[in-house]
Design a protein around this nucleic acid. Sequence first.
DNA 1: TGCGCTAGCGCC
DNA 2: AAAGGGCGCTAGCGCA
Length: 594
Amino acid sequence: MTNGTGARAGGAHGTRRARDARRWALAPAGGGRVRVCPLDPRGGRAGPVRTEESAAAAVRAGQGVARWVWRATAEVQPGLLAAGVRVERCYDVEAAEALLLGHEGRAGDPHALPAALARLRGLPVPPDRQPVHRETDPQPSLFETGPVPLPDGVDPLDALLEVYAAQVERTERAEHPERMRLLLAGESAGTLVAGEMGHAGVPWSAEIHRELLAELLGERYAGGGLPRRLVELEEEVSRAFGPHERVRPDLAADVLQAFARQGIRLGSTRAWELRKVDHPAVEPLLRYKKLYRLYTAHGWSWLRSWVREGRFHPEYVPGGAASGRWTTNGGGALQIPKVVRRAVVADPGRRLVVADADQMEPRVLAAVSRDPGLMAVANSERDLYTALSKRAFSGDRGQAKLALLGAVYGQTSGDGLRNLAALRRRFPAAVAYVDEAARAGEEGRLVRTHLGRTCPPVGREEGGAPADESSGTGPETGEGFAGTDGEPGQAGARAAGAVRARGRFTRNFVVQGSAADWAVLMLAGLRQRLADLAAELVFFQHDEVIVHCPTEETDLVREAIDAAGRQAARAAFGDTPVRFPFTTAAVRCYADAK
DNA sequence: TGCGCTAGCGCC
DNA sequence: AAAGGGCGCTAGCGCA
């Protein structure tokens, strides 16, 4: 399929008006059919409604359409992918609703078109998800949740147009409308990337995976139960406690009791706590935990559930986390342990181009805070933490990294605090920026990224008194929660703790959320740049992408990634000298990258 | 049997 | 070196 590169029939005009005129709405019409119509710049209907046999047919017929507006990409895209139809751009109304609601300082049911419609019409807002009963299921107790249906008698296309037109208007009322438009476009592109990536899947060698399981865990016994290596380690742990002891390492209570019998008091069986203890059981226990984790989370049953025909197909959820980061459903795609990456192998004649953005957090902080010193450090050499350590930590890279992450995460104790003081002296604007984000959160004010992605407001159960919705939400409001009613007893302490937690959350948000903005724009740009190649995006994890491509395309792919990263930085942070370089490797096997 | 909870740990 | 921010997932347990 040809991808329109520039001028095409009827459209050499590059004005926004002309582009908007080529937006079309698409809504289901029953039986797989869809109804489509052109839109005017304000989001209203600009021409007759047509009915098409399927979304794929509509997209094929609508070659001049610049952007498809629909309820949710996840609803339409499976049909398109099955038919092999690619969409250039879309506008996902439910993804946009989530961002706009957040920007407006409102919470709740962001992902449902019916809820948005109800708000517009002043009707009771339905819940976000609702139980769905499958008729084929004989068990009436088996329910699962699904998207909320529109009320009876409401036409899906009418509902879509009504909500979309209101969104266009709300976008114009955003603090920075042009930035919000960019964010909405980026988030929508993200939904396309997410679906395509899940569809393509990560090339996965079940054979190599099984080999490494056998190598690390030993063989499985015929009667089921734990693999050999785990059984051996369990015996070793027990023996370390005494000749007739039996301690089951995966039962925390068992382990704690065993240590207590030997006079060793532990608050938990966490690995970092165990490491502080001098006892012969510790070493095999730690090895057991490591391997048990592999066995349960990425072992044989994981392989059976998630890998088919040489591909691992995760379901990505763009913006699934409060910070705007993506999450996944099932398969734990964003937590693939390093050892298992040996099983990720390119097809014959292909390579995996693995690109990892270098030291994302400090670069983001430099860009958003515009701290002159930190911006200079961000460009002085490849490894930012080394540069940082030379400026402020007498060459100790580890300390420099810890101090910076401590500032971003809201560290409250330990060496980090002393290091934080050093950081504050050298980079006052950077530290002040995250401090201000924390204070805003504690006072119940809204906290946003440059593009306008906004930290969700305090939840009701989160403790403390949430900011009164009616009291305004601008940065200038907020007497804070300091004077909440109630006696200064335990409840007061709990509320104070919740307020501080909120501060850490918003402190982190300005960095993590801004990184999420950058990442989704980078993905959007990369998707477009790869459109004319045989390369496919197969994996994304916060600040890392994997592109699976013919060996001869690796250089082009590297260039595309770098260009997409540069473009995303300009878009997400405005005019900034801060660069966001990638470490890129073209490898046969994921484990060989970096 | 299913649900909600905690503990623990993988990734960024 | 310390144990903080964001997540998903599994196992085990108590409860209905």
